[in-house]
Lab assay of single mutants.
Amino acid sequence: TFVEFNGKKVEYPTPEAAEKAAKKLAKKLNLKVTKKNGNYKLE
């Protein structure tokens, strides 16, 4: 499962880990999380 932000793509071993990381990053970077095709994107 990938988390995409600032043009970077980071892969996580589980969807749970990706979701957790996405939410944490979104909060830190003041972005919102969108889920697309099972992957997460911060914008």
Rank of each mutant, 00 (worst) to 15 (best):
E16M: 11
F5N: 01
N39Y: 11
Y40W: 12
E4I: 12
V3K: 00
G38E: 06
K8P: 01
L29D: 02
V10F: 14
N6Q: 10
T14E: 03
N39D: 10
F2D: 01
G38F: 04
N6T: 03
K41P: 01
V3H: 00
E4C: 14
E16F: 08
K32R: 12
A17Y: 06
A17D: 10
L25R: 02
K9C: 15
L25V: 05
T14A: 03
Y40S: 01
F2H: 06
E43G: 06
K27C: 14
K28F: 11
L31Q: 04
K36P: 05
E11M: 15
P15A: 12
P13A: 12
V33I: 15
F2W: 14
E16V: 08
K41I: 15
L42I: 11
Y12S: 00
G38V: 02
V3D: 00
K20W: 11
F2C: 09
P15K: 10
N30M: 08
P15G: 07
T14Q: 03
F2V: 08
E19W: 15
E43A: 08
K41W: 14
G38Y: 04
F5L: 07
Y12H: 03
K35G: 05
K35R: 12
V3N: 01
K9P: 03
K9R: 15
G38T: 04
A26R: 03
K24Q: 13
K23A: 11
K32G: 05
E4Q: 06
P13Y: 07
V33S: 03
A22T: 04
L25K: 03
K8I: 13
K41S: 12
V3Q: 00
N37F: 08
V3T: 01
K24F: 15
L42H: 02
K9F: 13
A17S: 09
K36L: 15
K8L: 11
N6C: 15
K27T: 08
E19C: 13
A17V: 06
K32V: 14
L31E: 00
N6I: 06
Y40I: 09
L31D: 00
T14I: 03
G7H: 06
N30P: 02
K28N: 07
L29F: 15
K24M: 14
N39M: 12
E43P: 01
K41L: 15
A22Q: 01
E11V: 14
E19R: 12
E11R: 15
N30D: 06
T34R: 08
K32P: 03
K35E: 10
A22S: 04
A26Q: 03
K27M: 11
L25Y: 06
G7D: 06
K24G: 09
K35L: 15
K27D: 08
A18C: 03
K28M: 14
N37R: 06
A21H: 05
A22M: 04
F2E: 03
V10I: 13
F5S: 01
K8S: 08
P15M: 11
L29I: 03
P15F: 05
E4G: 02
K8G: 06
E19Y: 15
G38M: 04
T34V: 13
E19G: 07
Y12A: 01
L31F: 04
K28V: 11
L25C: 10
K9T: 10
K36A: 13
L25H: 02
T1H: 13
T1P: 08
T34P: 00
K8R: 13
K32F: 08
L25F: 07
G7C: 11
T34S: 09
K24H: 12
K27G: 07
L42S: 02
E19F: 15
F5K: 01
V10L: 12
E43M: 10
V33L: 12
G38H: 05
K36F: 14
E16W: 11
N39L: 10
